[in-house]
Each structure stands twice: as C-alpha cells, then as structure tokens.
Design a protein around this nucleic acid. Structure first.
Lengths: 148, 148
DNA sequence: CTTGACCTATGAGCAGCACATAGCTATAAA
DNA sequence: TTTATAGCTATGTGCTGCTCATAGGTCAAG
C-alpha cells in the first residue's frame, strides 16, 4: 500500500523525521544520532511499516540538549542521569551544577597533562634536530626515544 | 618436583621475571604489562611448567622503550610499527621523526579543543551562579544547559 | 598437608562513536 | 508498470588503552 498520499495527515500529529534528516538539522552524523538512540538517550517511535525510527519534535529538543551538554564536557552517562532526574519531575539543576564542577576539575587535570605532553613533544622535536639517524643495535629500537 | 634448587642455574641464561615484578620495576600496573604482552609488543617466553610468562632483560628494555614512546605521545600502533622497522634491521629514526611531527600536530589540536572546553565550562560556572534552579517544564530538561 | 594470601592467564567491559553489512525505499528512467 | 539504482535503514562489529572479573595455580607458613 502507498501511504505517501496520507503523509500530510501526519502533520496533525507533528513533524516526523528520519535519522539522517534530524542529524543534518543539528549538524552531527547520522551514526551519532543512531548511537544516542541505541543507548536510549533519545526515544523515537517506530514506523511499524518498515521498522524505521521516527523522530518527533521532542526528540529534536532532546538531541539539542544532549549536544549542548556534551559541549560543556558532560559525559553521555551524566546526561542520562540528568534526563532521568527531569523525567521523574525533579529539578535537575543541582545535579547539573555538581557534575559540572567535577568535570571541570577533571578537564583542568587532563588539560595540564596535555600541556605537559605538548611541551615534551616540542622539546623532543627541538633536541632531535641535532641528532643523527642510527641503525638499531642489539635490543635497542631507536636511540632518539631511548635517549630522551 | 621442586625446581627451586635449580633456579640459580637460570642466572646462566639471564634474569627471568614474572609480570608483577617487571611491572613494579617500571612502575606500571601488571595489567598494563599483560596487555602489551597480549598484543605482542612484548614477547616473553613461556614457562612450560605453569604456562606463566617469563620476562627477560630484553623484554624489560622493550617495555621501557614502549613507556618512553608513550610519554612522547606515540600510540601503541605507532610503537608497533617502529619496533617492526627495527626488527627488520632498518633505521626506525626517520619514521619516528615523522610520526612525532604528526602526533604533535594532533596534540596541538586536541590541546586547543581542551582549552576551549575549559573556557566554556568556566564561563558556565560563572554564569550559573546568578541563575536559580528550576523545575523542568514540558520537554525541557535543565534551563542552565539549554540556555547556555 | 592444608590453609590462605597472593599470583596467573584470559575473557569481558568501558566511552563514544565510525564503519561494514545486508536489506529496504523512493524516485526516475524505460 | 517494471526496473534500475542511488541512497537510505538497523544492527553488528571494531577501535584505543587499558581495567576489572573470573577461575584457577603457586608457595611459604603452620
């Protein structure tokens, strides 16, 4: 049966989208949206005709929330907890504040690690400019690394 | 049979260690050493009596090489390639230089991302201090995140 | 000889996707 | 109307670099 002529009726129930269209609207890959769907962060309905996911306006909003939270360093697991709070009608804000604080500390830490790594790498680049290449001897692999 | 009385003979063939002892000597976890062994970066021999791995001096050196390379941002896959070059008797240095260059570029990039993330997070911390907690309405989850 | 602390190898799990696969859809040409 | 085919779909698997869980082995003390 051809449902295409009936599709306009769906507007009565709100706009429905498939995964690729939704992904394009928020500028992420379809695989990312599929992944969030798979782990239950987004809960679209199924089109019983073809088993495809149908994303509604609320799923769109949910996805935007997820992406905003991601851009603030929240993990998907954090986001799940936050959404669960809100689903239970509770205020998620205190939890959100607390998680942000913790993630910020972690980000500071990994930022410092990155900075130190970057420094080491730049130092190696510099030092190695003066050093020659060598053929490995015995159980040595590369004197540049071993001698750093 | 008790082999312990024969063990001193092994010194003729060099010092042998088990995973935990080697791990302690280089200050990493035994699981890390097991992992490197599992993926073939370190190739200890097997004690045929008990199927345990026996690490020799060359494995110790190899592990130190791996850790030095890791501390310069090389991936385990990079390290595998480098070791393979050396095993074939080739000079690994040119490859090492080239990989370092690439990894440094990537580190710069992710460092910049981290810095931007950190900045966003700190900004959010600051902004949110003036904002109240709110009970979720409709399909909203947390106005702090949504309104950032 | 038995207890029990500690050790072992191996399988599985983690984040956060990206990719491979097999099969479905939709549009346009024939 | 059929057919071709481009593009879509859901789902399974792979990736990095470990860490943890499990089942069993070792070994010195009692």
């Amino acid at each position: 049966m051809n449902w295409s002529k009936l599709k306009p009726l769906r507007k009565l129930f709100g706009v429905r989208m498939r995964v690729t269209q939704l992904a394009r609207e928020v500028n992420v890959s379809a695989d990312t949206v599929r992944y969030y769907t798979r782990i239950g962060l987004i809960t679209p309905i199924r089109d019983s005709e073809n088993n495809y996911h149908e994303y509604r306006e609320q799923d769109h909003k949910r996805l935007q929330f997820i992406l905003s939270a991601r851009s603030l360093g929240f993990s998907l697991s954090d986001i799940e907890k936050i959404i669960d709070e809100a689903r239970k009608g509770k205020m998620a804000c205190p939890l959100v504040r607390q998680i942000l604080e913790q993630r910020l500390r972690e980000t500071e830490e990994s930022f410092n690690h990155q900075r130190a790594l970057r420094k080491r790498m730049m130092q190696a680049m510099k030092d190695w400019k003066k050093k020659p290449n060598k053929t490995p001897t015995g159980h040595e692999v590369c004197h540049l690394i071993e001698g750093f």
